[in-house]
Design a protein around this nucleic acid. Sequence first.
RNA 1: UCCCGGGUCGUCUAAGGGCAGGACAACAGGCUUUGGACCUGUGAAUGGUGGUUCGAAUCCACCCCCGGGAACCA
Length: 568
Amino acid sequence: MTEPKGKTEGQENAPNFIHDLVEADIGDGKHGGQVVTRFPPEPNGYLHIGHAKAICVNFTTADIAAGGRCHLRFDDTNPEAEETEYVEAIREDVRWLGFDWGSHEYFASNYFERLYDCAVDLVKRGLAYVDSQTLEEIRAGRGDFYKPGVNSPFRERSTEESLALLAGMRTGEFDEGAHVLRAKIDMASKDVNLRDPVMYRIRKVTHHRTGDDWCIYPMYDYAHPMSDAFEGVTHSVCTLEFAHHNPLYQWFVSHFDFDPTPRQYEFARLNLTYTVMSKRLLKRLVEEERVSGWDDPRMPTIAGMRRRGYTPAAIRRFAERIGVSRRDSIVDVGLLEHALREDLNATSPRTMAVLRPLKLVIENFPEGEEIELDAPFSPNDESFGSRTLHLTREVFVERDDFMEEPVKKWFRLAPGKEVRLRYAALVTCNEVIKDDAGNVIELRCTWDPESKGGNAPDGRKVRGTIHWVSAKHAIDAEVRLYDRLFNDENPLDEAHEGDFTDRINPASLEVLRAAKLEPSLATRGPGERVQFERLGYFAVDPDSSPAGPVYNRTIQLRDSWSKQSKKK
RNA sequence: UCCCGGGUCGUCUAAGGGCAGGACAACAGGCUUUGGACCUGUGAAUGGUGGUUCGAAUCCACCCCCGGGAACCA
């Protein structure tokens, strides 16, 4: 996973100030050259592309140092939100992205005992106390941005009393809200986080791992830095919204003799155009059934992207290219799509499928005859192999590839026009058959038998090449056409009226149930990715079976024709 | 009104006193049995005002704009 450090030549990889800083630390011999990072999700939901960036940053940072490692730690300190289901999904997603945390899987909940001991220690040293004010009183006492806070009347309570109360909190003597443990720092600090932050609260809730062993739970601000320190983390890398917690983070770890003492660094979280990334909003989409679930292929979740047909390599490549900095940004989703196409182009077998079939009859092609054609799975890589296609008298072509009254520069099918059936032959359209309503239902053509394979013996140029499938050999399939979930670059822009769901793209999913596939597509299993020539990249959906193949469109090919025709 | 971050092509990012570079996107052309891929080319930026300097995106001052911050969430 280690990437070359040079970033001047070609600038293939965008800069990463975290990498730079870690390299400097290694150069200075800090921590004996050791680098330990961690990815610390709370198991309260599914991971999304923003997490993917954080995962990449943490794992690639650890890879800079020889022997460096990245831990997977579940920050499960709030039993109300967390579930084992999410733990498993997170493991699967990180692994799928291509990262390996080895034996270094941890849970903050594993540290509850040690965390408690450290808290007791802090109380004994006069650095923490039990506060018995109500939640409202604590809130009021904290002051605000402009007013300093005031000390709690319990702030100077004796160490013995705090210790006794804390022990009682732990054994369940008190109701929720009766007491909290607070760090004794500075109620007048300009940094509101330093105004005696709460370390423990009473919650009589069953934890997904520790069950009912505990009824007090540590707050993130206490548990997180301590957990990092317990694990020997050197560089605790997180997103910018935690920057305000950095002084507090340092306060906690500096009161113990940790070696190494971890330090926190922040980078800007990922934002993408046409995408919402907040867990809360994603949850709404699922609950309101705007999408089929967390793994709906339109979701920016790792699970959704996987189902959609994204490759781990594309996501990692994307993460490298956007760089790591401290400035707020909204990355063009086109950059993600570019990374996707780049990988898919290199790795996907080419196949043919007709999404909206139109029958084409080759009148001068003998009934019942079949011509075998060898068609490579890749235009430039022989290792992909090839398959046999059968040209028959009746084939299906794409409705969109026929225009009764062609516009300027139309190279595809039209009355009197000659096109190439890819890999097969040249055909000329002679007649258009319509139903009573005037809809085109069939094309009558003739072919040039001399053009078998696709080239005319006289060397005449035929610009148009279209895909097709043999009517006799075609497999029926369902194809789900996915597009961007939102039709607005920034669905959350405050300038908008109404709800972000108003900006959902009504055409984000179109299901085609009468698609026709070439036979090689019938037996591919869930997760397999192919290109349908001229259409895009598609992946087999988990709903698929040999009896009823289902393909998801991952992404369309770049389409310079539609761009050009739109301009006119 | 307070504290902390941050402002470079449309977007993401280099350069950190000495030619503002790259990638995506856009545009133009070439090539092509995918209107794909590939190749070539073009246009496109230092938030503002002063100052220091031979020279400022870079240093200084002031201003403006954007993001985050006052859970017993993470």
